[in-house]
Each structure stands twice: as structure tokens, then as C-alpha cells.
Write a protein that binds this DNA or RNA. Structure first.
Lengths: 132, 132
DNA sequence: CCGATATTTAACTCATACGTTAAATGAGAG
DNA sequence: CTCTCATTTAACGTATGAGTTAAATATCGG
């Protein structure tokens, strides 16, 4: 629904491949050409070219022509949306966990007060795997 | 190469889908059942079930049986590897950009000194090769 | 045990991802 | 112009992803 959904899709999808992550890490030490970028990998040049296309489509890198080469570099702010989402995720993750802790405390309180009606924390834990 | 590559693959891949991201956000407000989780979406229950399987395989959620339901919750620390990678990416991204700025400054300096041979800002200057 | 409810598995379709090799493009050098 | 190098595009095979409907499984409540 949010208009940024596609952007996030592309960014995370681009990051979900070890070759592409390695390419990004390599670009951290400065812009370089496709051939140089491809060198450490065992796959064909067209394969690398496609990975670069994916990264470019995800706005994570830029390629600009320079003589017969194409200079690849990290796209400034290209990681922003993904970073922002992850930062939000980090907060709600920890928040959720602290809520859970709180809830467990309440449960404990409640059961100490002796109201024994329905104190199921993990209801009916019986033997799972009954043979058919 | 790193043994964590697959873990990151799965995490980012899991995050690369808006339905799954929405599910995670929903889980931020506390554990819930599959059915409840599926309710806001337009897709079938089996589809949701598969999304949950993907999230579980990526260690982002946990599902534990509870009566005839399965209670889904965020997996504590499940986001850790992805968060760590992203934090590293954030640093090397900005580092790389500040290096770029530095480099542009040097270029400018150089051209101010009047050495008019080949003062193209975008050519020359390859192979900086500062091992990071 | 039976029937209802929650969820998953099976079997299938369609689209996209990732790799290959071979051919095409674009720019510099002779 | 022609040769060569860097890179992409084309065409293809195969695997995986995301969705569907129908059937299976598991657990509770009577």
C-alpha cells in the first residue's frame, strides 16, 4: 500500500544474494569498472552484468559510461529506504519483546494473587505426536 | 564465503515481500494466530501459511502450537544478522561517499594548480586500491 | 467417537531469478 | 576503416516464488 513498497521490495531482493552483497562491499572502497568488479567471482561476465542491473534497478548502485568502461559506484542514499525500514524494525522488535516480558510479569503477578481461573500460559501442553 | 551468507540470503529474501513485512509489523503488537494474521490480507490462507513458513525458515518468527492454533511471534534476535549487515553497510556507504567527496576535492585542488593537461574530472585516477 | 475449526500439504499454474554460451554494441587505438 | 576490448543483449534451461483450489491433519468440545 505504501508507495515505497516496491522500492523496499527491490532493495531487499537485491540484498538477498551473496554475490550482490559482495559487489556492494567491494564498491565501498571506491568506484570501479564492471570487469574489475567481476574478477573475484567464478561466474560469467554476463551474470555479473545482470547482477549490476539488479542493483541499479534497486537504486543501490549507479553506472555511468566512461570511455569504453562503465564506472560503478554506490548510489548515495540508495540504501536509505531499507535502512529506515530496518531501523523501524529494530525498534518494534525490541519493543515487542519488552512487551512480552511485561506480559509475562503480569501473568506471574496474577497467578500469585491466587485467582486460579484459567491460568493457562501455554494451554494444554499434552503429548503432541500421538501415533495414529 | 562467510558461513552466514545463507542466513542473510534468507532474511533479506524474506523481507523482500510486502505481505511478509506487513506480517512482521503486525507481530510487533504481540503474538497472534495464523488466522488473525491472515485477516487483513486478500490472499488465501495457504498463501499466508507459506509466507509464515518463509519467515520461520529465515528465523524471523516462531510458531508454537497452542491448542488448535499456532501462535506466531517475532523471533528474538532473528533480525540480528540482517541488522548487523545493514549497520555495516550504513558505515561503508557513508565512508565511501566521504572518500568520494575527498577525492573530488583533490581533483579540484589539482586543477587549481593549473596543470592543464588532462584535467578531466571523471577520467584518470583509477586504481586507488587503498585496501580497507 | 464425531463434527467443527485452524492450519498445512498436495498438486498445479504462471512469472521471475540466476546461470549459461553466442552474438551484438560501443568506444579507443592503430 | 578495422581490430580489439569492455560490456550488454539474446536465447535458452532450470530452479524457485507466489498464488490458486482441494484434500489432509490436528485439536477441541460435545
Amino acid at each position: 500500500m505504501t508507495p515505497s513498497a516496491e522500492i523496499l521490495d527491490r532493495a531487499f531482493s537485491a540484498l538477498a544474494d551473496p554475490t550482490r552483497r559482495a559487489i556492494l562491499e567491494r564498491l565501498a572502497s571506491g568506484p570501479t569498472t564492471v570487469g574489475e568488479l567481476a574478477e573475484p567471482f567464478d561466474i560469467s561476465l554476463p551474470a555479473i552484468s545482470k547482477h549490476l542491473a539488479v542493483l541499479e534497478r534497486a537504486r543501490l548502485i549507479r553506472r555511468e559510461p566512461e570511455a569504453q568502461w562503465r564506472r560503478c559506484s554506490l548510489h548515495p542514499d540508495g540504501l536509505r529506504p531499507a535502512l529506515d525500514w530496518m531501523d523501524r524494525a529494530r525498534s518494534f522488535w525490541t519493543e515487542s519483546l519488552s512487551n512480552l516480558a511485561e506480559y509475562l510479569n503480569e501473568e506471574q503477578e496474577e497467578s500469585r494473587h491466587g485467582s486460579s481461573r484459567n491460568t493457562r500460559k501455554k494451554a494444554g501442553r499434552r503429548s503432541k505426536k500421538r501415533g495414529v
